[in-house]
Design a protein around this nucleic acid. Structure first.
Length: 263
DNA sequence: ATGGTGGCGCTGCCA
């Protein structure tokens, strides 16, 4: 099974790029984040025309929103609310055979890395705690679960262009990294990308819109992740970051991340 | 130290 996760930053604006992605990579499943469209306006027919008859989506007007496109049939579509908010950041489906696939969009957290001064950072930390508690309570040791999405945290030193210059910048602060690790430990998740790429190697999935020379300076971060439970570890086959997508016409600031695995 | 860009949708909010 080939799975791709992508923060598309408006599905309606980038339907053409989604088509490009499907023709280049031919994924069986696509987890999308930041679709930025209310459910009644979701381009369902367009997604099905791309070869994905099974589509789940949970959107809202203007912000957030997650979706799952699939060639494989699924059931038990669940839109999960986190931190008592209905902000459309977590969607789960179940494939035949019981494998769960989740599309997740963790809050970015604003600019100031202090929960006392910044409600958005407090929300991000709460969201990470919520995920850890929920996974610990609902995922058993034999369960096959894939959680993919924009986690908005770059945990390792080589998940950012400069650990030293980023350690006080939201996305790479110790408080977030520690809670992301707790979330990861809650179901003993395997980081599928780092399963193949050693931690000594830089690996990014996002480059800011604010640096026009993003290729030259390469000041990226690895904000997008695919995690699998131990029951799927032996099935992991390969991973790829579609870095070239950052140079597509009118790109998202995130690029697609692909993982091949046997279920 | 600062400001830099982009999407939504029409005013600032969010990333």
């Amino acid at each position: 099974m080939r799975l791709v996760t992508w923060n598309i930053n408006s599905i309606r604006l980038r339907m053409g790029l989604l088509r490009q992605l499907t023709s280049v990579m031919a994924p069986d499943m696509i987890c999308l984040q930041e679709i930025k469209v209310d459910d009644p306006l979701f381009p369902l027919a367009d997604c099905q025309e791309l070869g994905y008859p099974h589509v789940a989506f949970s959107g809202m007007k203007g912000y957030n929103g997650v979706a799952i496109l699939s060639k494989l049939p699924f059931e038990d579509v669940t839109s999960l609310s986190r931190c008592g908010r209905d902000d459309r950041r977590h969607l789960a489906v179940k494939l035949a055979g019981g494998v769960q696939v989740h599309s997740l969009y963790i809050p970015a957290g604003g600019d100031i890395p202090d929960p006392e001064q910044n409600d958005k950072f407090a929300h991000k930390l709460d969201f990470l705690r919520d995920m850890a508690a929920w996974c610990a309570a609902t995922i058993g040791p034999e369960d096959k679960v894939i959680i993919a999405g924009d986690f908005n945290v770059a945990p390792l030193e080589n998940d950012v262009w400069s650990h030293k210059q980023m350690v006080k910048v939201v996305s790479h602060t110790p408080a977030e990294v520690e809670l992301l690790e707790r979330f990861q430990a809650s179901a003993d998740f395997v980081d599928a990308m780092r399963h193949f790429v050693p931690p000594s190697e830089k690996l990014f999935t996002w480059w800011s819109y604010r640096s026009p020379d993003w290729q030259k300076n390469d000041r990226g971060r690895r904000l997008d992740h695919v995690w699998v439970t131990p029951a799927l570890r032996a099935g992991l086959r390969s991973t790829l970051v579609a870095r070239e997508a950052r140079s597509w016409t009118q790109p998202s600031d995130h690029v697609p991340v692909m993982v091949d695995l046997d279920l």
